[in-house]
């Protein structure tokens, strides 16, 4: 490819990336050292925003909750995604229908899905799950005001929302496993479990790493689903980092843009730390293939 063609093809993407990624990132870092309000130039205040963020117990709670949500959801998605994809791989003509039905959860805008999900446990809007639990155990679960029931609700919703995409990726990976490998394992006397453990999973390791990467990124950014599913998230320790940033920087006319930026920078560092092993693994694999 000539240099001119390369430049022409690359320029639009580069422009978008600089405009929508680099500039906001640089501005966020700059603001994190300033006291900023709308329409006024920032005033340099050193590390004050960082010290304020790090000394706020609410930030600590948000980080812990977000990490907990990320770990549990990622593990659940990997396990369930693999199991469902394996089952789906064995389906015949019904596969496209089941696949299409499952993907509805992923297509729905997150907040719409979350509102619908909340109705399952909200007696004002049906609360089917509550009726079932009450009929079976006689207990009334306070899904929105008790910390752990609310966490279970949030985890269930996040898994429900993200599982279809992960399952789709894993299914594509499973279909890329050569039939000869499976047959060889069978001839060698491998059981179903050992075939999965020692043949299929190692073969699709790259896909599983990619699913992990995407899931971690998605869950660390959890925000809008908390509005309907955890209306008093802060009070019960179920506030995500992104909701905390929104609350500090924007909600109710707040203008703490500098503090919000500092929390964002800290969040970016946290996200990078969480993703580092996966990015390194993917890069190594790509290098080995090259």
């Amino acid at each position: 490819m000539r240099r001119r063609e390369f430049t022409l093809l690359m320029a639009p993407s580069l422009l978008v990336m600089v405009g929508l990624l680099v500039v906001p990132l640089v501005r966020t870092i700059q603001w994190s050292f300033q006291k900023v309000q709308y329409g006024t130039p920032g005033e340099f205040i050193g590390l004050k925003n960082y010290s304020q963020a790090l000394s706020d117990p609410r930030f600590g709670r948000a980080v812990l909750f977000t990490l907990l949500l990320t770990v549990v959801v990622t593990v659940a998605i990997l396990v369930l995604g693999y199991l469902v994809a394996t089952g789906m791989n064995g389906l015949g003509k019904l596969r496209p229908v089941v696949l299409g039905a499952m993907l509805v959860a992923y297509v729905l805008p997150n907040v719409v899905g979350a509102v619908s999900f909340s109705w399952l446990v909200d007696e004002n809007f049906g609360g089917v799950v509550n009726y079932v639990i009450h009929a079976l155990t006689g207990a009334d679960v306070l899904w929105f005001t008790e910390t752990w029931p609310n966490r279970i609700l949030l985890i269930a919703h996040t898994v429900w929302h993200l599982l279809p995409f992960s399952m789709l990726m894993i299914l594509a990976g499973l279909q890329g496993v050569p039939a000869e490998l499976r047959e060889a394992a069978k001839i060698d006397g491998a059981t179903a479990w050992t075939t999965h453990r020692y043949v299929i999973i190692p073969t699709i390791r790259g896909v599983l790493g990619f699913v992990c990467l995407i899931t971690i990124m998605d869950v660390l950014r959890t925000f809008d689903s908390l509005i309907p599913l955890s209306p008093q998230a802060d009070a019960i320790g179920n506030e995500s980092i992104m909701l905390y940033v929104f609350d500090v920087a924007f909600r109710n006319g707040s203008q703490q843009l500098g503090l919000g930026s500092a929390i964002n920078v800290l969040s970016i560092l946290l996200i990078l730390a969480c993703l580092f092993p996966f990015i390194r693994g993917l890069l190594k694999e790509a290098k080995a293939k090259a």
Partner: peptide
Amino acid sequence: MQFPRHLRAGIAALTIAASVAG
């Protein structure tokens, strides 16, 4: 990574549904 035909069809249907919703 190759997507078999039914996966492509599923994704296409999904795209159409999302566009209509949008």
